[in-house]
């Protein structure tokens, strides 16, 4: 049963390995730019929710980067589906759909974890003190898992490569900017507040930040993340079942 998961991971990790330097370099740039622009720009002169802005920002960057990385598997699956047809190999093989989903999602977690450690490194360089706890690892795992599953769903449902870019532009990027990554959501007008509370990122950002800065953990939010996770698991499984080469 596990050979399918192992196979998918073997493929993804080996392809990643060959481009690792470039990929890691590329993914480390944007959080650094945010840190320089906002972190140094506002520094500790601005306080948000009682935290120096840079302390508020870094957990947001961890959330953003891990989301970007776990969600980026959608792009890779697309290329292997539409251009190289490598995904067909998985569909032809005697492995189950669940194995394909888990293989890809574990790869998403792998990529997300690299970005998390990268930003830990930045935090250290910028002299920001984070409280890294078991709870943090649990919620960042859930967060990355959730968005890998979303990526899996989207990459199976779209009909061509162009639609992937549209989903990114109209869903993922706005979500990253509005869901509390760079400023607290309670600063948003009521209308947007309703919208962002329909999006999973609002909950994971809040919990991840709280766990890293010693804030109060809202356990109901963890419950909501769990619901999103289960939903996306079912949609991913459904989408893989439906997919045709």
């Amino acid at each position: 049963m596990l050979n399918g998961v192992q196979a998918v991971l073997y493929r993804e990790i080996n392809v990643f390995r060959k481009k690792a330097k470039k990929q890691i370099l590329a993914s480390s740039l944007s959080p650094l730019l945010f840190l320089i622009a906002f972190g140094w720009g506002f520094g500790d002169r601005v306080a948000v929710n009682g935290l120096p802005y840079i302390l508020f920002l870094i957990p947001g960057l961890i959330t953003m980067s891990s989301l970007n990385q776990s969600y980026s598997i959608a792009q890779e699956i697309n290329i292997s589906r539409f251009y190289f047809h490598v995904f067909d190999e998985f569909l032809i093989a005697p492995i189950s759909h669940i194995e394909i989903v888990f293989g890809e999602v574990l790869y998403g977690l792998f990529k997300a974890s690299i970005s998390v450690f990268l930003i830990f490194g930045y935090a250290f360089l910028f002299g920001v003190d984070l409280r890294i706890s078991g709870l943090f690892f649990l919620v960042i795992l859930m967060h990355s898992f959730l968005f890998s599953l979303l990526a899996m769903t989207v990459s199976m449902l779209i009909k061509d490569h162009g639609s992937q870019a549209q989903v990114n532009t109209f869903v993922i990027t706005p979500m990253i900017f509005l869901c509390g990554t760079f400023f607290p959501v309670d600063k948003l007008p009521a209308f947007f507040k309703v919208i962002v509370h329909c999006l999973p990122l609002t909950y994971s950002t809040q919990v991840i930040r709280a766990s890293l800065t010693g804030g109060e953990i809202n356990f109901a939010y963890i419950g909501i993340m769990l619901i999103f996770m289960c939903t996306f698991f079912l949609t991913a499984l459904y989408a893989v079942k439906k997919v045709e080469a």
């Binding site: 493929r11 392809v15 060959k18 190289f84 047809h85 067909d88 190999e89």
Partner: peptide, 12 residues
């Protein structure tokens, strides 16, 4: 299966 379009992994 040997598909019409090669589905080998070019990077591997």
């Amino acid at each position: 299966v040997v598909p019409q379009n090669s589905n080998l992994d070019r990077d591997l």
